[in-house]
Amino acid sequence: MDASLIEEYKKHTTQKIIFIIFILVLIVTIAGISATLGSYPISVSEVYSIILKCLIRHPENTKESIVWNLRMPRIILAVIAGAGLASSGAMTQGILKNPLATPYTLGISSAAGLGAAIAIILSKGVFAGKYIVVGNAFLFSLIPTFVILALARFKGATPETMILAGIAMMYVFSAITTILMYFAESEAVKSAYFWMVGDLGKAEWKIIPIVFLFFIIGFILLMIKTWDVNVMMLSGDEVAKSLGVNPEMERVVVMLTSSFITASIISFTGTIGFICLVAPHICRMMIGGDYRYLLPASTLFGGFLLLTCDTIARTILAPVILPVGVVTNCLGGPMFLYLLIRRKREYW
């Protein structure tokens, strides 16, 4: 009995690890395919030799420049952004014990949207630099987090309070954005609107290190917290305390970390929807709710999902490039519904 139980537990664990490795392989494969696709025809073998070459020196001709300076940053940003959004979504759902909770539900997306809209609409000419938009979106996106933290400090950080406060702020920020847009010029409104849909068109090598740094630090922090989130998901606050976990503090730390990851991503890409909600759920259906495996799996799956969606966005109506946010919503919605119908057991 003893041995067989341990065996069974190990079998479950191995399955989860295989799933994670499988997604990793998928990402590399899709990235390889994605690099060959685009309006400028470059063959598969050429693409790989260009990538290998450019790892050591700068691109020399148009082809090399297209692959290395246009496609590669976009692919890498897609993976990091997807991974970051999915990891913060997974942890937010867990820490707030709510299947709908994501950093977006906590008001981050609409706050970032307002920040971007203010920068786009109010800054003309001299100040119209794109980094103003990025910086402003980032600053604004942190407002809801700090409001919620303040609320937690004085009123106690129950999940319900946090989510309700987030939703309240979402409405407020959306309303202010709408007022701004109502009085703005149509060109500015258009670009502000497109910012909110979210796309990866702004990808370039320069921004990769910043986004990656936020992501990797955040991810490591979240990985450290997976046991605590497991305990909190499997028991109420009181039992969590009796197991040596401080639920209120964990909620604050995880929320803050998730918010920073999300904010750093969406201030460059705009609010790409659905990844942070859907990727964790799909992984939960596949490998269950143990966060030690669920977090890395969701993270990789998010990267895979966004990369795939972006590849589709770039090619489906080529030469027109759709904003990836549209594709994630169009594909993610039906796919998620399908999985909800198909699932065999309760997973939440």
Binding site: W227, L234, G289, D290
Partner: peptide, 17 residues
């Protein structure tokens, strides 16, 4: 009602400290 988990996983949480 807990979040879906196996009995083993629930008991494993006792090792958290």
């Amino acid at each position: 009602q807990l979040f879906p988990a196996t009995v083993f996983e629930v008991v494993l949480m006792g090792r958290k400290p």
